[in-house]
Design a protein around this nucleic acid. Structure first.
Lengths: 344, 344
DNA sequence: CCCCCTATTGTAAGCCCTTACAAAAACCTC
DNA sequence: GAGGTTTTTGTAAGGGCTTACAATAGGGGG
């Protein structure tokens, strides 16, 4: 069933059918009615592939992301919503290699380009040199927006979180509260956002004249259990060296903070009485965890909206000006932390 | 840039180019090399839209889901992984109307059909009469697999959880532990899975000769805060009527259980000492929440895998036999519950 | 009733592929 | 080298749509 059939059945030409189907002017009321009647009766569904082919426009937007997980679900939901409102569909590709391999990102980009998506939203985590080369090649091939990473020298708009300011604010909160021995549970080292957070942690300490103690820094991978284990490792290591536990810990994300608090409880360390734990992300759980987390709430939903809007604007206006959108943030003070000298 | 250009540049015909591009036999080594050289040099990317049009096969699978959220992310991730391995891409559509409106589901189905996806995975929540009509129409139009709901009289394969057995097992655990006043925090009433859980709760009580006390049943909407509020409402209502709180509560999902536990703590009700809370889903967070939840772990990842495999098999073999796959489950006993008579 | 202008309609080419079928080339055999 | 096979190659039609442009119909004025 195609427009030739519809044309025949309604006694008009395919051009007229096409015009009716696309609500274009220049069709008599009579012809329009005849066509509509046949379309309804036959439940005809035009073939978008053919349409896209003829128009060189697919009305599909692609996402290249590290994995479809709870961390990204709000962001993707927002992207989908905006796309839908603007008439676009969403094609999602994600990366299954452990290392978020560049090969697989490349594969995903090619897939989307072959499918002739109108634009791509990229959630990079790594930004290595080969990524740079890859993006450099893509920058003029297809409209694109990057989230979270701002890559210098590449003409691609981005929507990013300001990772430094909130980290500094939260560090100031701890330091002002009298904490000086502040540990850190770090995330994966290739992650640009993560590294900025860590960098701000280090500089916050230095600005107050506090030396960074390597023994207070543990590495995790953003998961609950890695936070759990990181805390246990930290405790063991400090024990061994005869050092005290820190009075506060900054975890690079909420999940690791939760894991660390769980481990603390099991080790008899009370949070926040003995140990303040603060973190980053403001995921939904952070509010319902007991204790409620002190964290930086990043509005993933808005981040997704902005990314989609930026991309669609780029697609539709063909504007080439690079835009950098910085998300606002919000510090949430919960019950997982408190000033050092507070009684209670 | 298209195959005509490539043909011209490499001095062969488009048929030969097409054969080379698709690794088809019957091309001389010489011709193949010439074409490959040009393809590499020009970085030519064939247009999948045209290909799909010519082949009547898009290698795209669509999902119609209620919303892209953390609950579904594992399932979607698994679907994507299987699709990718089998050479399919994924197009996601979700429903933004509060009520998961049938109109929007219909819109999404039409969108995917217009885009000529090869098959659809549907995550229904409602299954009302209009849904039935809709699916009845679609059943022969396009290969489809439904998750979670088994709809009688419709020739569409499904992958479902067994909601009743695990609920009964968990109820037996509570009842065997001496609990008799067992409350329930229900989810949304249109959700088939939810209703089966509730039904099993009711029948478990009846089988032990326990009357269902309506005052012990509260309604939530699966969110943390609805569980939180449900518990507070229950307490207030029981207070008013001069009744005791139940000794255990079955929450229709983990999030509501967590909300309820949070509310309990705030009201001075100790979990599990004063109140056992059990629930359903086994989300990642349930294990790291304090206390660790007693819950039914549903393997969302496997569910997604099975759904995708079932669909792809249907697409590729054109088999018409309806299949019903039932997921296995696992009861996880955590620290949010305990036998009534246990001291501690 | 003729002429001109506008509104409507249809034809055909184009978007980029695949593939059946015909044609040409290469290879064997005797 | 003729005759027959097999392999390679190319032409052209088809998949379903859009749209420029030509053709036709309809309307108004004189």
């Amino acid at each position: 069933m195609n427009i030739y059939d519809i044309a025949k059945m309604s006694g008009v030409s395919i051009a007229t059918v096409s015009r009716v189907l696309n609500n274009k002017p220049g069709v008599s009321e009579n012809a329009r009615n005849k066509v509509m009647a046949v379309v309804e009766q036959t439940e005809f569904v035009p073939n978008q592939l053919a349409k896209s082919l003829a128009n060189s426009k697919s009305f599909v937007i692609g996402i290249v992301m590290p994995g479809i997980n709870d961390y990204y679900s709000n962001r993707v939901d927002a992207i989908h919503k905006v796309c839908k409102e603007e008439g676009y569909s969403l094609m999602i590709t994600s990366n299954y290699k452990d290392t978020n391999s560049i090969e697989e990102d490349l594969f995903n980009f090619n897939l989307l380009i072959e499918k002739r998506v109108d634009g791509i939203i990229y959630f990079p985590t790594h930004v290595s040199n080969p990524h740079y080369e890859l993006l450099k090649k893509l920058e003029k091939k297809i409209p694109m927006v990057i989230t979270d990473s701002d890559i210098e020298g590449i003409d691609i708009s981005c929507v990013v979180q300001d990772s430094e300011t909130p980290t500094k604010e939260l560090m100031a909160y701890l330091l002002d509260g009298g904490h000086e021995r502040i540990g850190y549970i770090n995330g994966l080292s290739y992650d640009q956002v993560n590294n900025k957070r860590y960098g701000a942690y280090v500089s916050s300490l230095k600005n107050r004249g506090i030396e960074v103690d390597e023994d207070l820094v543990e590495l995790g991978n953003f998961s609950f259990s890695s936070g759990y284990q990181a805390l246990i490792r930290m405790k063991d290591k400090l024990n061994e060296k005869g050092k005290d536990m820190p009075t506060a810990i900054f975890a690079a994300n909420d999940k690791m903070a939760i894991g660390a608090i769980k481990a603390s409880k099991e080790l008899g360390i009370r949070v926040p009485e003995d140990l303040s734990v603060v973190s980053y992300d403001g995921i939904e759980y952070s509010e319902f965890f007991i204790p409620k987390l002190t964290t930086v709430k990043v509005n993933q939903y808005k981040l997704g909206q902005l990314a989609a809007q930026t991309l669609i604007e780029k697609i539709e206006t063909k504007k080439t000006k690079r835009v950098k959108v910085v998300m606002d943030h919000k510090i949430v003070i919960g019950n997982s932390s408190r000033p050092l000298n507070q009684e209670g």
